[in-house]
Design a protein around this nucleic acid. Structure first.
Lengths: 235, 235
DNA sequence: TCAGCTTACAGTCGTGTTGACCAGAAGGCG
DNA sequence: CGCCTTCTGGTCAACACGACTGTAAGCTGA
């Protein structure tokens, strides 16, 4: 056992943050911010945003706070991912990390601050990160891709109103495959959670598409909702 | 803020344990073991099995250990559920609990030890528990019922071999609704994860049913498996 | 101005899944 | 040996969903 017996287990909160950025092949790709470690252990390596849990702060609030500290943004979706507590995941002391994952609006993230100690990277081709953070991001990616298929979190990447093509681009970027526009329209309308705004998005060289708004109150049965998962957490 | 500023946050591991027992209406019901608190706070109240996390023990091992301590059993399924860390969930200090949920084999659980400080209760009609443990059990129940529908964890309640009727009873007990025997057979066989043992269960006053065995290696694609979730954890 | 281009949007068709239902098989029991 | 039970295999219709076709409606450029 590598730790001092009298050293207590330390509790940290980290957050995997996702946003979308335009990609080369016309399809958007997932990006995530990393922070450079400014102290030992693993000084200089890139790691997930996070920090020690203050005694009087809620877990979710701590996650949102570190998210704001590194990106200047408020999450549009924030959910607990998993708690990582392997005995040897940190070389110095026993550290248990409660990890959250978050989605932030893409156009806001484009204006996000990125200093010398904050760096955005494509989530699918990460550099070698500190501790077990590569594995954590991979798990968060798996959860995002799984959850996009059976919930309505995709709109968290977009603004208040969006076209069906924009929403489809989000799905295609997350799922990494093309979707038939007509079928996509049918299933999204059938979900009952989209409301037409009555407005259209003009300016493009084709027929102007309708603008929709996400309506969380619509046709949602009680038993498919998850307990205590807030979709719009207080930042 | 009710806590002393210098008191550190304490880290606990608790486990929600489920098994099946024969019920009145012919349908089995879910039972869970509780332990009586032997010290303050909430002394005398019933609570989930658990304890403080030792510095050198893995989270999952700690969960399996407390499970063994209260039931004398090894889990056939063990998975992390959620981490509960509300600032005021414990009146004395800040306590963050990493909660696991487990399934134990029903016939083994029937022989499980139950002393004056261990009590098995139906999981759907709990008494008032200590702290936020009622909410935790409710969430574990929701997760069990959700996960039974898209995974193959139901066999964890049964022994090595079982009939399709026994397996169907498990599903009916967990989902709390009747299932058509013929359709149930079709979907289970189509899943490809059941193997005939070649033996039959004799002795009943009807046609003897085939005995099956669960085969986890069969026809499982790589991307529907969850990362680092062990189905047969080391006890 | 008008052909032509692009995307929005609507509908059809075939397939696979799933629930409801039916019928024969194969044991034990009176 | 009839009769009960459950086991087991099958059909049928409703539905969801992917592939595909066709029309609508804007903008652009010659």
């Amino acid at each position: 056992m590598p730790h001092q017996l009298d050293a207590p287990t330390r509790l940290a909160v980290s957050t995997v943050i996702f946003t979308l950025r335009p990609g080369a092949a016309g399809r958007a790709v997932l990006w995530t911010p990393l922070v450079r470690r400014t102290r030992e252990p693993q000084l200089g390596l890139w790691a997930l945003p996070g920090g020690w849990l203050p005694v009087n702060e809620e877990l979710e609030v701590a996650a949102a706070r570190t998210l704001r500290a590194t990106t200047g943004l408020a999450p549009k979706y924030l959910e607990q991912l998993y708690t990582f507590g392997e005995v040897n995941r940190s070389p110095d002391a026993r550290v248990v990390s409660v990890v959250y994952w978050a989605l932030v609006q893409s156009d806001e993230a484009a204006r996000a601050a990125a200093g010398p100690n904050v760096r955005w990277v494509p989530a699918d081709t990460l550099p070698g990160l500190a501790f077990d953070h590569n594995r954590i991001v991979e798990y968060a990616l798996w959860r995002l891709r799984t959850k996009v298929e059976y919930t309505e979190i995709a709109h968290a990447f977009l603004g208040g109103t969006f076209t069906l093509a924009e929403l489809r681009e989000v799905y295609e970027a997350v799922l990494q495959r093309s979707l038939d526009p007509a079928n996509f329209r049918r299933t999204m309308i059938a979900s009952g959670r989209l409301r037409e705004t009555g407005e259209f998005q003009a300016g493009a060289a084709h027929r102007p598409p309708k603008l929709y708004r996400y309506d969380p109150s619509a046709t949602r049965t009680a038993d498919d909702r998850e307990p205590f998962q807030s979709e719009r957490p207080a930042s």
